[in-house]
Each structure stands twice: as C-alpha cells, then as structure tokens.
C-alpha cells in the first residue's frame, strides 16, 4: 500500500528547518572552538564564538516555539510514550532495522495519522527534545552568563562541571543528528522523508 498522509503542519516544518540549520551551525562552531588550532582555524575563534552564541540564543527561542506548539496542538500526542510493553516494542523495531529491513519485511509499526513515530524514533526524539536539548540550552546560557553558575558543585568548580556537561551533551546531540539524518533515508525512497519535511506529506511504503 502506498499513499500520502499529511503529518507535518507548516509550523512543524518551519521549526524543524530552522532547528536543523541552527544545530548544524552549533555543531560546526562548537567543534571549531573545542578543537581550535591557531595556525589552521576551522572557523576563526571569535567568529565561532559569535556564531555559537547567536545560534544558541535563536535555538532557545525556537525550542520555546517547539514546546508551545507541542503542548498546545495535537502534535504533543506523538511524544507520549506508552510505558507498557515499551521494551518489547523497542526490541521489535530494533530487530527490524538490523535484520527485517534487509529481508524486505514490512515495518512493524507503520506510520499513520495517529502514530507519526515508530517506538525507537519516539524514544530517541523524546530523549533528544526533552532531555538533551534542554540540558544543552541551560548549560549554554550558563556559559553566556557564567556569573550565574554555582561556583562550587560537589567540591569542584561549578563552571568546569557546567562546561563539561555542555560539551558532552553537545556531543550526544551531534551524535543524534548523524543517526537521525541517516534514518531519514529509510523511507519510501531515499529522499522521501526529506521531501516530507518540505511538503508536509509523509509518503508510505
């Protein structure tokens, strides 16, 4: 069966597009600052700092848009994880990605109007959007206003603790982005999921 379902309203597509651009800018500037090399800078340090700060501020505003949109529109239902049988569903989806997909099996949790994400997607998206991104935003703002950070946390430097959390979580966000982009190629066609985020219509297998 093949068909098109309208799954991505305009605000989701705009939010997602902006979020994608900002995350890419943040990763590039973040990596450039972390692995800065005075002789061969990937991005000049002061430019990277500005790029990172501005992108981070816009990302924070964009995150508020996401939160408002998610809780004020039906979009929120896609992020509600049913805990019952979660492990089995995750295993089933994982098994499909590791074996079933190569045997041309049908996806165990087909995309529908009521279920935009498969269990693995739902689990990782909730983790990324409600755990990783808020942490990276909070620690990022703390880096912008370091005087607000607790000077001591568990006997160690609060600033250092904050910075390491920001860098580590930032790494996991970039990790997520790579995997996310790859899994988007698993659609009706190689580019159908990317097209969906432009047209708003999900194309089924």
């Amino acid at each position: 069966m093949s068909g098109k379902i309208y799954l991505y309203p305009v605000w989701v597509r705009l939010w997602h597009g902006l979020n994608a651009i900002l995350i890419i800018l943040l990763i590039l500037s973040g990596v450039s600052m972390q692995y800065t090399d005075p002789a061969n800078p990937f991005i000049r340090f002061d430019i990277a700092v500005k790029m990172h700060n501005i992108s981070g501020i816009i990302l924070s505003v964009n995150y508020i848009v996401f939160i408002l949109g998610t809780f004020m529109t039906p979009n929120g239902k896609y992020y509600k994880i049913a805990m019952k049988g979660l492990t089995q569903r995750l295993i089933k989806q994982f098994t499909y990605y590791t074996f079933g997909i190569f045997k041309h099996e049908k996806p165990p949790f087909p995309i529908s109007k009521d279920s935009k994400f498969n269990p693995l997607q739902q689990f990782t998206y909730v983790g990324a959007m409600f755990v990783l991104v808020p942490i990276v935003i909070i620690t990022g703002w703390a880096l912008l206003y370091p005087e607000l950070v607790l000077t001591k946390i568990m006997g160690g430097s609060g600033l250092k603790f904050n910075d390491f959390i920001h860098v580590i979580i930032g790494f996991f966000v970039s990790f997520f982005m790579f995997v996310h982009i790859y899994f988007c190629t698993i659609g009706a066609t190689f580019i159908s999921n990317f097209r969906s985020m432009v047209t708003g219509f999900h194309e089924s297998h």
Binding site: Y35, S157, L159
Partner: peptide
Amino acid sequence: EGYVIGANR
C-alpha cells in the same frame, strides 16, 4: 580554578 574553552580538553 577555571575552564578555558579550547585550552582545556
């Protein structure tokens, strides 16, 4: 006593 982005990895 501190953390210098780029210097402390």
